[in-house]
């Protein structure tokens, strides 16, 4: 096969892929016109969880920063929304802006101590940070302690608006991770994940790379937290800062396929559809969800996308650089 032929085939494939992706995005964006209320509701959850999963994957799958504490940022987003809209009568746009500022500042503050840890110690450290924030909010009178806050302004947001917001967030999260990984920084992240010492010798600035990745993921998770709670409309510290969020993110990424961009897409869809289905089994849902996770890990340790890639070599969003002949 000639060089020209290979390139031509590659361009053709890229063209088909791009066409399919654009068609799918258009179909999804038009869902409010032809889908049921339930479809829109499920869509909000899928794309919100997709954004969470994608960011956790960026941290754990591509950078080796396995965090069990990023639910803190969901809680920060939720409470920013509640305080801005309820306590100060602000709008949703203002909530997003302020949540970004808080997320960046908080990430910078905790990064100093937390980046001194690595491996499992980093994981535990992030969890401790999250639990500390939870305790702080539970004992903070300004946010009504553990009693929660009704985000009354969110009661009457049309579902279509929430859906489009979640869809945008989901798409941006995928695009963001894709372009980061296609950039020089993506190479640095993966090098750092695979062998930090070797990466540093080759010129990767470990602290700076980790910090940028951490900032991006934390900020995006915070924004997703704002959107999630625009849907939930009632925030309490326990659930907002709860480990359940981290478990969801891990489930989505591990089931879908860690270290792949498609993995969180598949994982988020499976997770949300499963949760919807498991409403049919009250009291048993978490047991069933856990069992499914165990089975999938045993059968396909690299997740569904990892298994598909292993068998068919298929990737929708390839971040690999291929050498030209």
């Amino acid at each position: 096969m000639t060089h020209k032929h290979v390139l031509s085939s590659a361009y053709k494939l890229i063209g088909i892929k791009s066409g399919v992706i654009v068609a799918a995005i258009i179909a999804l964006a038009l869902l409010p016109l032809y889908g049921s209320a339930h479809a829109i509701n499920v869509g909000i959850l899928v794309f919100s969880y997709l954004a969470l999963g994608q960011m956790w994957n960026l941290l754990a799958g591509y950078s080796g920063l396995v965090s069990l504490g990023h639910q803190a940022f969901i809680g920060i987003g939720a409470y920013t929304l509640a305080v801005v809209t309820v306590s100060y009568g602000g709008g949703f746009f203002m909530s997003f802006l302020i949540s970004i500022v808080i997320a960046v500042l908080f990430s910078l503050v905790i990064s100093f101590p937390i980046f001194k840890l690595s491996g499992v110690y980093f994981t535990i450290g992030t969890w401790i940070v999250s639990e500390s924030v939870l305790m702080f909010f539970r004992n903070w009178r300004f946010v009504n302690f553990d009693a929660g806050m009704n985000i009354t302004r969110a009661f009457r947001i049309p579902q279509e608006n929430l859906y489009l917001g979640a869809l945008a967030l989901g798409i941006v999260s995928v695009a963001l991770v894709y372009f980061i990984l296609r950039s020089k920084m993506g190479l640095s992240l993966m090098a750092m994940r695979d062998n930090p010492a070797a990466a540093e010798v080759r010129g990767v600035h470990l602290y700076k790379t980790k910090l940028i990745c951490f900032l991006i993921a934390s900020t995006f998770i915070t924004i997703t937290g704002v959107l999630l709670y625009m849907n939930i409309a009632f925030v309490m510290p326990g659930p907002a800062f709860g480990i359940d969020w981290a478990v969801s993110m891990v489930f989505i990424v591990v089931i879908g396929g860690i270290g792949t961009i498609e993995g969180p897409i598949i994982g988020a869809a499976i997770y949300v559809f499963l949760r919807q289905f498991l409403f049919n089994f009250p009291g048993m849902s978490l047991i069933i969800l856990g069992s499914i996770a165990v089975i999938v890990i045993l059968v396909a340790p690299k997740g569904i996308m990892g298994a598909i890639h292993g068998k068919f070599g298929f990737e929708l969003f390839s971040v690999r650089r291929k050498m030209e002949d």
């Binding site: 799918a24 179909a27 999804l28 869902l31 032809y34 889908g35 049921s36 339930h38 479809a39 509701n41 499920v42 869509g43 899928v46 897409i265 869809a269 559809f273 919807q276």
Partner: peptide, 10 residues
């Protein structure tokens, strides 16, 4: 994925 969402009609 798109059809799954569209099919969510109970």
């Amino acid at each position: 994925f798109a059809l799954s969402l569209a099919a969510c009609n109970g």
